[in-house]
Protein backbone atom coordinates (compact mmCIF):
# COMPACT_ATOMS: atom_id res chain seq x y z
CA UNK A 1 0.00 0.00 0.00
CA UNK A 2 2.74 2.48 0.94
CA UNK A 3 4.62 1.36 -2.17
CA UNK A 4 1.54 2.24 -4.17
CA UNK A 5 1.54 5.73 -2.70
CA UNK A 6 5.23 6.21 -3.31
CA UNK A 7 4.90 5.14 -6.93
CA UNK A 8 1.93 7.40 -7.49
CA UNK A 9 3.70 10.31 -5.84
CA UNK A 10 6.73 9.95 -8.10
CA UNK A 11 4.50 9.78 -11.18
CA UNK A 12 2.69 12.88 -10.01
CA UNK A 13 5.95 14.80 -9.59
CA UNK A 14 7.24 13.78 -13.01
CA UNK A 15 3.93 14.69 -14.58
CA UNK A 16 3.81 18.07 -12.91
CA UNK A 17 7.34 18.75 -14.11
CA UNK A 18 6.32 18.18 -17.72
CA UNK A 19 3.12 20.17 -17.33
CA UNK A 20 5.04 23.08 -15.83
CA UNK A 21 7.59 23.02 -18.62
CA UNK A 22 4.90 22.90 -21.31
CA UNK A 23 2.82 25.70 -19.82
CA UNK A 24 5.88 27.82 -19.29
CA UNK A 25 7.16 27.31 -22.84
CA UNK A 26 3.80 28.09 -24.42
CA UNK A 27 3.43 31.28 -22.44
CA UNK A 28 7.03 32.22 -23.22
CA UNK A 29 6.57 32.06 -26.97
CA UNK A 30 3.06 33.49 -26.89
CA UNK A 31 2.87 36.98 -28.38
CA UNK A 32 1.75 39.74 -26.04
CA UNK A 33 3.98 41.55 -23.58
CA UNK A 34 2.67 41.62 -20.01
CA UNK A 35 4.47 44.93 -19.35
CA UNK A 36 2.82 46.50 -22.35
CA UNK A 37 -0.60 45.29 -21.22
CA UNK A 38 -0.10 46.59 -17.70
CA UNK A 39 1.19 50.00 -18.72
CA UNK A 40 -0.97 50.53 -21.77
CA UNK A 41 -0.09 51.44 -25.33
CA UNK A 42 1.23 54.92 -24.51
CA UNK A 43 3.94 53.82 -22.09
CA UNK A 44 7.49 54.91 -22.88
CA UNK A 45 10.16 52.42 -23.82
CA UNK A 46 12.07 53.16 -20.64
CA UNK A 47 9.21 52.47 -18.22
CA UNK A 48 8.44 49.31 -20.16
CA UNK A 49 12.03 48.11 -19.83
CA UNK A 50 12.00 48.93 -16.12
CA UNK A 51 8.82 46.97 -15.53
CA UNK A 52 10.14 44.04 -17.54
CA UNK A 53 13.25 43.97 -15.40
CA UNK A 54 11.15 44.19 -12.26
CA UNK A 55 9.00 41.22 -13.39
CA UNK A 56 12.09 39.28 -14.42
CA UNK A 57 10.89 39.17 -18.03
CA UNK A 58 14.27 40.26 -19.37
CA UNK A 59 15.93 37.09 -18.09
CA UNK A 60 16.62 34.13 -20.41
CA UNK A 61 14.10 31.27 -20.60
CA UNK A 62 15.86 28.81 -18.26
CA UNK A 63 16.55 31.42 -15.62
CA UNK A 64 12.94 32.46 -15.58
CA UNK A 65 11.77 28.84 -15.47
CA UNK A 66 14.11 27.71 -12.71
CA UNK A 67 13.39 30.84 -10.67
CA UNK A 68 9.71 30.01 -10.84
CA UNK A 69 10.05 26.29 -10.10
CA UNK A 70 12.49 26.69 -7.21
CA UNK A 71 10.23 29.41 -5.83
CA UNK A 72 7.31 26.98 -5.91
CA UNK A 73 9.34 24.19 -4.31
CA UNK A 74 10.34 26.60 -1.55
CA UNK A 75 6.64 27.26 -1.07
CA UNK A 76 6.75 30.74 -2.59
CA UNK A 77 3.95 31.31 -5.00
CA UNK A 78 4.29 34.02 -7.64
CA UNK A 79 2.45 37.30 -7.35
CA UNK A 80 -0.35 38.08 -9.75
CA UNK A 81 0.68 40.92 -12.02
CA UNK A 82 -2.86 42.10 -12.23
CA UNK A 83 -4.00 41.82 -8.62
CA UNK A 84 -0.69 42.06 -6.85
CA UNK A 85 -1.51 39.21 -4.45
CA UNK A 86 0.02 35.71 -4.31
CA UNK A 87 -1.54 33.30 -6.82
CA UNK A 88 -2.30 30.75 -4.07
CA UNK A 89 -4.53 33.39 -2.54
CA UNK A 90 -6.45 33.72 -5.82
CA UNK A 91 -6.67 29.96 -6.30
CA UNK A 92 -8.03 29.53 -2.79
CA UNK A 93 -10.77 32.10 -3.22
CA UNK A 94 -11.82 30.96 -6.70
CA UNK A 95 -11.74 27.31 -5.63
CA UNK A 96 -14.40 28.12 -3.07
CA UNK A 97 -16.65 28.74 -6.08
CA UNK A 98 -15.48 26.12 -8.59
CA UNK A 99 -15.01 23.33 -6.02
CA UNK A 100 -18.57 23.29 -4.72
CA UNK A 101 -19.90 23.82 -8.23
CA UNK A 102 -17.95 20.82 -9.58
CA UNK A 103 -19.05 18.64 -6.67
CA UNK A 104 -22.68 19.69 -7.15
CA UNK A 105 -22.43 19.05 -10.90
CA UNK A 106 -21.00 15.56 -10.43
CA UNK A 107 -23.49 14.81 -7.68
CA UNK A 108 -26.32 15.91 -9.92
CA UNK A 109 -24.94 13.92 -12.86
CA UNK A 110 -24.58 10.75 -10.77
CA UNK A 111 -27.99 11.06 -9.13
CA UNK A 112 -29.58 11.54 -12.52
CA UNK A 113 -27.55 9.17 -14.69
CA UNK A 114 -27.20 6.06 -12.54
CA UNK A 115 -30.88 5.50 -11.73
CA UNK A 116 -31.88 6.39 -15.29
CA UNK A 117 -29.18 4.13 -16.73
CA UNK A 118 -30.39 1.25 -14.55
CA UNK A 119 -33.97 2.00 -15.51
CA UNK A 120 -33.08 1.99 -19.20
CA UNK A 121 -31.16 -1.28 -18.85
CA UNK A 122 -33.96 -3.04 -16.96
CA UNK A 123 -36.46 -1.78 -19.54
CA UNK A 124 -34.25 -2.59 -22.49
CA UNK A 125 -35.84 -1.73 -25.86
CA UNK A 126 -39.07 -0.68 -24.21
CA UNK A 127 -40.51 2.86 -24.38
CA UNK A 128 -38.82 3.94 -21.14
CA UNK A 129 -35.41 2.93 -22.46
CA UNK A 130 -36.00 4.65 -25.78
CA UNK A 131 -37.07 7.87 -24.03
CA UNK A 132 -34.02 7.91 -21.79
CA UNK A 133 -31.73 7.28 -24.76
CA UNK A 134 -33.43 10.04 -26.73
CA UNK A 135 -32.79 12.64 -24.05
CA UNK A 136 -29.26 11.37 -23.58
CA UNK A 137 -28.64 11.87 -27.28
CA UNK A 138 -30.07 15.35 -27.03
CA UNK A 139 -27.83 16.10 -24.06
CA UNK A 140 -24.76 14.88 -25.91
CA UNK A 141 -25.52 17.26 -28.76
CA UNK A 142 -26.10 20.26 -26.50
CA UNK A 143 -23.22 22.64 -25.81
CA UNK A 144 -23.14 23.51 -22.13
CA UNK A 145 -22.96 27.27 -22.65
CA UNK A 146 -26.21 27.05 -24.62
CA UNK A 147 -27.85 25.03 -21.86
CA UNK A 148 -26.54 27.62 -19.39
CA UNK A 149 -28.11 30.47 -21.36
CA UNK A 150 -31.37 28.54 -21.71
CA UNK A 151 -31.48 28.02 -17.95
CA UNK A 152 -30.90 31.73 -17.38
CA UNK A 153 -33.77 32.57 -19.72
CA UNK A 154 -36.11 30.11 -18.05
CA UNK A 155 -35.22 30.07 -14.39
CA UNK A 156 -33.85 33.58 -13.94
CA UNK A 157 -35.57 35.81 -16.50
CA UNK A 158 -38.89 34.03 -16.97
CA UNK A 159 -39.58 32.60 -13.52
CA UNK A 160 -37.07 34.46 -11.37
CA UNK A 161 -36.33 31.46 -9.18
CA UNK A 162 -32.54 31.63 -9.46
CA UNK A 163 -30.14 34.51 -10.01
CA UNK A 164 -28.98 35.02 -13.59
CA UNK A 165 -25.35 35.30 -12.57
CA UNK A 166 -22.86 36.66 -10.07
CA UNK A 167 -21.77 35.25 -6.75
CA UNK A 168 -22.38 36.90 -3.36
CA UNK A 169 -19.62 35.01 -1.51
CA UNK A 170 -19.95 32.36 1.20
CA UNK A 171 -19.32 34.81 4.04
CA UNK A 172 -22.08 37.10 2.82
CA UNK A 173 -24.81 34.57 2.22
CA UNK A 174 -24.47 30.80 2.24
CA UNK A 175 -27.93 30.25 0.80
CA UNK A 176 -27.43 32.99 -1.80
CA UNK A 177 -24.11 31.48 -2.85
CA UNK A 178 -25.62 28.02 -3.08
CA UNK A 179 -28.45 29.38 -5.20
CA UNK A 180 -25.97 31.09 -7.50
CA UNK A 181 -24.22 27.77 -8.11
CA UNK A 182 -27.28 25.60 -8.75
CA UNK A 183 -27.99 26.60 -12.37
CA UNK A 184 -24.39 26.36 -13.57
CA UNK A 185 -23.92 23.07 -11.71
CA UNK A 186 -27.04 21.58 -13.26
CA UNK A 187 -26.01 22.80 -16.72
CA UNK A 188 -22.57 21.23 -16.30
CA UNK A 189 -23.98 18.09 -14.71
CA UNK A 190 -26.67 17.49 -17.32
CA UNK A 191 -24.11 17.20 -20.09
CA UNK A 192 -21.97 14.77 -18.03
CA UNK A 193 -25.13 12.83 -17.16
CA UNK A 194 -25.95 12.16 -20.80
CA UNK A 195 -22.63 10.36 -21.25
CA UNK A 196 -22.85 8.63 -17.90
CA UNK A 197 -26.39 7.36 -18.46
CA UNK A 198 -25.33 5.55 -21.64
CA UNK A 199 -22.38 4.05 -19.91
CA UNK A 200 -24.42 2.90 -16.92
CA UNK A 201 -27.02 1.42 -19.23
CA UNK A 202 -24.58 -0.59 -21.31
CA UNK A 203 -22.60 -1.72 -18.25
CA UNK A 204 -25.82 -2.80 -16.56
CA UNK A 205 -27.04 -4.58 -19.70
CA UNK A 206 -23.82 -6.58 -19.78
CA UNK A 207 -24.01 -7.41 -16.10
CA UNK A 208 -27.70 -8.33 -16.08
CA UNK A 209 -26.98 -11.03 -18.65
CA UNK A 210 -24.39 -12.67 -16.41
CA UNK A 211 -24.84 -16.07 -14.80
CA UNK A 212 -24.58 -14.71 -11.27
CA UNK A 213 -27.65 -12.56 -11.87
CA UNK A 214 -29.59 -15.69 -12.76
CA UNK A 215 -28.21 -17.29 -9.58
CA UNK A 216 -29.39 -14.31 -7.56
CA UNK A 217 -32.91 -14.63 -8.99
CA UNK A 218 -32.83 -18.39 -8.40
CA UNK A 219 -32.08 -17.66 -4.72
CA UNK A 220 -35.39 -15.86 -4.53
CA UNK A 221 -33.94 -12.42 -3.93
CA UNK A 222 -36.10 -9.40 -4.63
CA UNK A 223 -35.66 -7.77 -8.00
CA UNK A 224 -34.44 -4.62 -6.28
CA UNK A 225 -31.71 -6.52 -4.43
CA UNK A 226 -30.67 -8.33 -7.59
CA UNK A 227 -30.40 -5.16 -9.66
CA UNK A 228 -28.99 -2.73 -7.11
CA UNK A 229 -26.73 -5.04 -5.11
CA UNK A 230 -25.76 -7.92 -7.36
CA UNK A 231 -25.90 -5.95 -10.59
CA UNK A 232 -24.91 -2.38 -9.84
CA UNK A 233 -21.80 -3.20 -7.85
CA UNK A 234 -20.43 -5.07 -10.85
CA UNK A 235 -21.41 -2.37 -13.32
CA UNK A 236 -19.76 0.36 -11.27
CA UNK A 237 -16.17 -0.12 -12.41
CA UNK A 238 -16.53 1.27 -15.95
CA UNK A 239 -18.83 3.98 -14.61
CA UNK A 240 -16.18 5.07 -12.08
CA UNK A 241 -13.53 5.28 -14.79
CA UNK A 242 -15.55 7.74 -16.83
CA UNK A 243 -16.61 9.62 -13.72
CA UNK A 244 -12.96 10.24 -12.88
CA UNK A 245 -12.24 11.52 -16.36
CA UNK A 246 -15.32 13.70 -16.25
CA UNK A 247 -14.20 15.45 -13.08
CA UNK A 248 -11.15 16.55 -15.03
CA UNK A 249 -13.26 17.74 -17.92
CA UNK A 250 -15.46 19.56 -15.47
CA UNK A 251 -12.63 21.93 -14.62
CA UNK A 252 -12.31 22.74 -18.30
CA UNK A 253 -16.06 23.02 -18.70
CA UNK A 254 -16.04 25.44 -15.79
CA UNK A 255 -14.17 28.02 -17.87
CA UNK A 256 -17.14 28.42 -20.18
CA UNK A 257 -19.95 28.11 -17.70
CA UNK A 258 -18.32 30.48 -15.20
CA UNK A 259 -18.16 33.08 -17.92
CA UNK A 260 -21.81 32.56 -18.75
CA UNK A 261 -22.79 33.01 -15.09
CA UNK A 262 -20.15 35.58 -14.08
CA UNK A 263 -18.81 33.36 -11.33
CA UNK A 264 -15.43 34.28 -9.80
CA UNK A 265 -14.19 30.70 -10.12
CA UNK A 266 -11.04 28.99 -11.25
CA UNK A 267 -12.08 28.89 -14.89
CA UNK A 268 -12.85 32.58 -15.04
CA UNK A 269 -9.65 33.37 -13.18
CA UNK A 270 -7.50 31.57 -15.71
CA UNK A 271 -9.55 32.90 -18.62
CA UNK A 272 -9.03 36.49 -17.59
CA UNK A 273 -5.42 35.89 -16.68
CA UNK A 274 -4.72 34.65 -20.20
CA UNK A 275 -6.30 37.77 -21.70
CA UNK A 276 -4.29 40.02 -19.41
CA UNK A 277 -1.07 38.03 -19.83
CA UNK A 278 -1.02 37.57 -16.06
CA UNK A 279 1.56 34.82 -16.52
CA UNK A 280 2.13 33.71 -12.91
CA UNK A 281 -1.61 33.15 -12.51
CA UNK A 282 -1.98 31.18 -15.74
CA UNK A 283 1.01 28.95 -14.97
CA UNK A 284 0.04 28.09 -11.47
CA UNK A 285 -3.66 27.61 -12.11
CA UNK A 286 -2.92 25.24 -15.00
CA UNK A 287 -0.43 23.37 -12.81
CA UNK A 288 -3.03 23.15 -10.07
CA UNK A 289 -5.69 21.83 -12.47
CA UNK A 290 -3.32 19.19 -13.79
CA UNK A 291 -2.51 18.07 -10.26
CA UNK A 292 -6.21 17.99 -9.42
CA UNK A 293 -7.01 15.76 -12.40
CA UNK A 294 -4.22 13.35 -11.50
CA UNK A 295 -5.21 13.20 -7.84
CA UNK A 296 -8.84 12.57 -8.77
CA UNK A 297 -7.76 9.65 -10.91
CA UNK A 298 -5.85 8.19 -7.97
CA UNK A 299 -8.96 8.50 -5.88
CA UNK A 300 -10.77 6.55 -8.61
CA UNK A 301 -8.18 3.78 -8.16
CA UNK A 302 -9.20 3.56 -4.53
CA UNK A 303 -12.84 3.48 -5.46
CA UNK A 304 -12.12 0.56 -7.82
CA UNK A 305 -10.48 -1.37 -5.05
CA UNK A 306 -13.43 -0.70 -2.79
CA UNK A 307 -15.93 -1.86 -5.40
CA UNK A 308 -14.14 -4.79 -7.00
CA UNK A 309 -12.06 -7.10 -4.81
CA UNK A 310 -10.25 -8.46 -7.87
CA UNK A 311 -8.69 -5.05 -8.42
CA UNK A 312 -5.45 -4.71 -6.51
CA UNK A 313 -3.68 -1.40 -5.90
CA UNK A 314 -0.22 -1.67 -7.36
Amino acid sequence: MSRYFLKKLITLIILLFFVSLTVFSILFVLPGDPAQIILGLNASAETLANLRAELGLDQPFWTQYTDWIFGLIAGKSGNSINYGVPVTELIRSSLSVTGPMAVMAIFFAVMLAIPLGIYAATHHNRPGDVTVMFFSQLGLATPEFWLGILFILLFAVQWGIFPAGGFPGWDVSVWGSLKALILPAVALGAIRASILVRLTRSAMLDVLGEDYIRTAYAKGLKRRTVVYVHGLKNALVPVLTILGLQLGQLLAGAIIIENVYYLPGLGRLVFQAIGQRDLPVVREVVLFMAAAVVVVNYLVDFAYAAVDPRFKLQ
Binding site: R214, T215, A218, H230, N234, R310
Partner: peptide, 16 residues
Protein backbone atom coordinates in the same frame (compact mmCIF):
# COMPACT_ATOMS: atom_id res chain seq x y z
CA UNK B 1 -36.71 -25.22 -4.78
CA UNK B 2 -33.01 -24.50 -5.06
CA UNK B 3 -30.78 -24.59 -8.07
CA UNK B 4 -27.11 -25.31 -8.72
CA UNK B 5 -25.57 -24.14 -11.96
CA UNK B 6 -22.88 -25.51 -14.18
CA UNK B 7 -20.12 -22.97 -13.99
CA UNK B 8 -19.38 -22.05 -10.37
CA UNK B 9 -16.98 -19.31 -11.44
CA UNK B 10 -19.53 -17.26 -13.34
CA UNK B 11 -22.50 -18.30 -11.25
CA UNK B 12 -21.12 -16.71 -8.11
CA UNK B 13 -21.06 -12.95 -7.88
CA UNK B 14 -17.41 -11.82 -8.14
CA UNK B 15 -17.79 -8.71 -5.99
CA UNK B 16 -19.70 -10.12 -3.02
Amino acid sequence: IAMIFQEPMTSLNPVL
